[in-house]
Nucleic acid binder design. Structure first.
Lengths: 357, 357
DNA sequence: GGTGTTCATGTGCACGGTCACACTTGTGAA
DNA sequence: TTCACAAGTGTGACCGTGCACATGAACACC
C-alpha cells in the first residue's frame, strides 16, 4: 500500500508560548523588582501593600499573561476548590437542569465542578465513581442519583466530605434537598378527584427510585384522604416507550377514567397509545404528568402536569454545600430556608377534564 | 426574639479521620520501612521493585487508606489530567448526551472533566468561561457551543491547548467534529420531495447557530438539486413555543404541503398549531424534524425525523483529544477515521406522507 | 531620644509528590 | 581477580504557592 502516513498534531493552535514552563510567581516578582511573597500578597488581596507596588505587580502579571497555578495552591492550602457531582442519567432533562445550575452557582463562588456519571447502580460502579471524585480531593459532593440502591451504598460508604443529595425526598435526613414530591403528587391526584374522577390509575416510576416512591406515596395518601378506592400502581421505567406499552395493556381493561403518570414522558406514551385506540383525551381519559418538561405544553393535548424547579434545587444545593464548607457554622434559620422543601406547582392544561358522565 | 440560633455543620458525616492531614507518601514509607521513593515507584508501577517490597507497601497503603494527592502530582508533572468542556445550553438533550459520553470516555482514560457553561454568547461571557477553564490548567477543551459568535470569539482568543469543537459542521476545519448536518437535512428534504411535495417550507434554527445554518444549507442544496422552487426559511429559536407560534402564522398563508423543521421541538410546536386549526398530519401537512429525541416516536403523530448519535460524537471528541495529548503523533488514518463525519439516519414515522393532491 | 506600633516588604520553609542521580549488592564475562 | 552491568533501593532537589516570622522604615507618644 502506498498511503502516506503523515504524522502530526492536529488540534493544537499555538506551539506553547516561549520555552519551558508557564511564568510563576517568582518570574513576576523578578520583573517587578519585588519578592515572590509580595506577588502572592497581590494575588490574595492582602491589605498592606503600597498601591504603586500593587499596580506594578499587576502590570507585570498582565504582560506575562501570568496565571496562578491551581495545583500549587491546592497543594499548600490542602483544598481543591472542587465540588463533585455524582449523577445517574445526567442527560435527562431534570438532572441536566440541576447540574447546569450547580455548575453556574459553583463557578460564581470560585469553585470547580467535576461530574462522575454512574454507568449502573451496582455498588462497584458507585464505589468507582465516588473513588474518581475522592481521588481529586473534592471538598463536597452533590448526589443526583435518586435510586434507593445508590443511597444504601452511600450510607455504607460513609463519605468523609459534606454532601447533599438531590431528588431524594425523605431519605438521608439533613442531606436531602428536593422539591416536595409527595405534595406534588397530591396536587395532581386532588386535581383529578376534584374533577370528578373516582377510577384513577397511577403509572409509577421504577420502584428503585426514591422520587418514584414518593410520588406514589403522595398519590396513595391523597386517594386515602379523599376516600377514593385505589388500584395497585403500575411500575414503569420513566420512558415514553413504556408509557405506550402500558397504555396498550390498560386498554384491555378500561376500568378507569384518569391516570396520574409519574413523569411527562410516560404520560406522552400513554396518550399515544390511547389515541391510537381512538380514545379522546380528556373526554375518555384524563392524564396528568409530572415535571413539566418544556415540551409538555405542546403535547396533544397539552399536558396537565406538576412543575418542579430543577435549577432552584441545584442552586440551593451549592449554597448549602458552600455554606457548610466556608464556615463550620451556619445560622440555623438560613439552613432552614435553604432546606425548606421547594414546593411544586400544578399546571393545568388540556389533558384533564371531568369524566365522560 | 427568642429563637435559639444553634450553629452547626450540617452536612459532614465524619469529623475528618485522625488529626491533621491525610497520609502522605512518606507516612506510608515510614510504616513500610522503605524510602518515600520506593513508595512512589510502587504507585507508578516501576519495573524493578522486589515483589515482597511492593506487597508490603501496598498493604500499608491499604491500612492507611492512602490516596495520592492529585495536586502534588499535577504540580510536579505540570499536567492536570483535566479536560474542559465549554458548553452552551447544556441541559438540552443533544449537548447533555454528548457531555455524558465525554465524561465517561475521559474517566475511562484517567482524565477529569470540568464543565463551564456559557451564560450568554457575548465575548465577555465566553472569555470568562474560558478563563475558568484555563485557570485550572485544562489540557484540552471540548467546545459544545455551536453559535457562530462563539467561534468568532474562539478564533480570536487563540487558545493554546488542543481543542475539539462539536456541532460545528464546516467551521474551524480540523477542530470540528460532528454529525453531517447537511447530509441529514438533505435526507429529510429528499424524503419530502420524493413523497411528492413541491411546496415545502423550512423552519430553521437561529441564524447564529452553525448547525442551523448547515441544516438550512442542506435543505436549500437538495431543493436546488431536485429543481424544486424554494421560499425563504423561517428563522426560529429551537423551542416548541416558537414552533407553535410559527405554525399559527403559517396557517394564514397555507401555501405549503410540507415543512422541514430544524429540530424536533419546533416540529412539535408546529404540529400543535396545525392540529389546533383542525388540520390533519400528514394528510394536510407533512412534517419532518431533526435530532430524534426519545420522545419523538410518541408525538402525535409520531415524528419522521433525522437521528443523530450525540454520544458517539462525544466519545470521538475525547478519543481525538487524548490522542493528541498522548502522542504528539497520530496516524493520519486514525485521525481520518475519528474525524470522518458521522452520518445521520432518516427515521420515517407517521408525520409524513404524500400531499393531499 | 528612646520606645512601641503599624505598615510594607523580604526570607525560608512546608505542602506531597517525581526526577536525576548515587549507592549497594549480586552476577557473569574477560 | 577485575570489571561491567543490572536490579533494587535511597538521597536530595525541585515544582509554585502560602504561611510564619523577621526586618526595616515611618510615625506617634512620652
Amino acid at each position: 500500500m502506498n498511503t502516506v502516513h503523515r504524522k502530526a498534531r492536529y488540534l493544537s493552535v499555538k506551539v506553547e508560548s516561549p520555552r519551558g514552563r508557564a511564568p510563576s510567581i517568582r518570574d513576576v516578582a523578578r520583573l517587578a523588582g519585588v519578592s515572590h511573597q509580595t506577588v502572592s500578597r497581590v494575588l490574595n488581596d492582602h491589605p498592606s501593600i503600597r498601591d504603586t507596588t500593587k499596580a506594578r505587580v499587576l502590570q507585570v502579571m498582565e504582560e506575562l499573561q501570568y496565571r496562578p497555578n491551581r495545583a500549587a495552591r491546592a497543594l499548600v492550602k490542602g483544598r481543591s476548590r472542587t465540588i463533585g457531582v455524582l449523577s445517574a442519567s445526567s442527560s435527562e432533562y431534570g438532572p441536566a437542569s440541576s447540574i447546569a445550575a450547580i455548575q453556574d452557582a459553583a463557578r460564581d463562588a470560585g469553585y470547580y465542578v467535576n461530574t462522575a456519571n454512574l454507568t449502573s447502580v451496582d455498588p462497584e460502579s458507585i464505589a468507582a465513581a465516588l473513588d474518581h471524585l475522592m481521588y481529586q480531593a473534592v471538598e463536597g459532593i452533590v448526589v443526583i442519583a435518586p435510586q434507593v440502591r445508590v443511597f444504601d451504598a452511600l450510607e455504607n460508604l460513609a463519605i468523609d466530605v459534606p454532601f447533599v443529595s438531590l431528588q431524594s425526598t425523605g431519605r438521608l435526613g439533613d442531606h436531602a434537598l428536593s422539591v416536595d414530591q409527595i405534595a406534588g403528587a397530591r396536587l395532581a391526584t386532588r386535581h383529578l378527584i376534584e374533577a370528578g374522577h373516582t377510577d384513577i390509575y397511577h403509572l409509577a416510576g421504577p420502584q428503585d427510585w426514591i422520587e418514584a416512591e414518593a410520588r406514589m406515596r403522595g398519590f396513595l395518601e391523597e386517594m386515602g384522604a379523599q376516600d377514593v378506592p385505589t388500584t395497585a400502581p403500575i411500575l414503569g421505567d420513566w420512558t415514553a416507550d413504556f408509557g405506550y406499552h402500558a397504555g396498550r395493556e390498560l386498554l384491555r381493561v378500561r376500568d378507569f377514567t384518569a391516570i396520574f403518570s409519574s413523569n411527562d414522558q410516560m404520560a406522552l406514551g400513554l396518550m399515544h397509545a390511547f389515541r391510537d385506540a381512538g380514545l379522546d383525551i380528556p373526554r375518555d381519559v384524563s392524564i396528568v404528568g409530572f415535571d413539566d418538561i418544556p415540551e409538555a405544553a405542546h403535547f396533544w393535548p397539552p399536558l396537565t402536569t406538576v412543575r418542579q424547579d430543577f435549577a432552584e434545587v441545584g442552586k440551593r444545593a451549592i449554597a448549602l454545600l458552600l455554606g457548610d464548607l466556608a464556615g463550620d457554622t451556619l445560622e440555623e434559620d438560613t439552613v432552614e430556608e435553604y432546606r425548606s422543601t421547594i414546593m411544586p406547582e400544578l399546571v393545568v392544561r388540556a389533558s384533564t377534564g371531568p369524566p365522560a358522565s
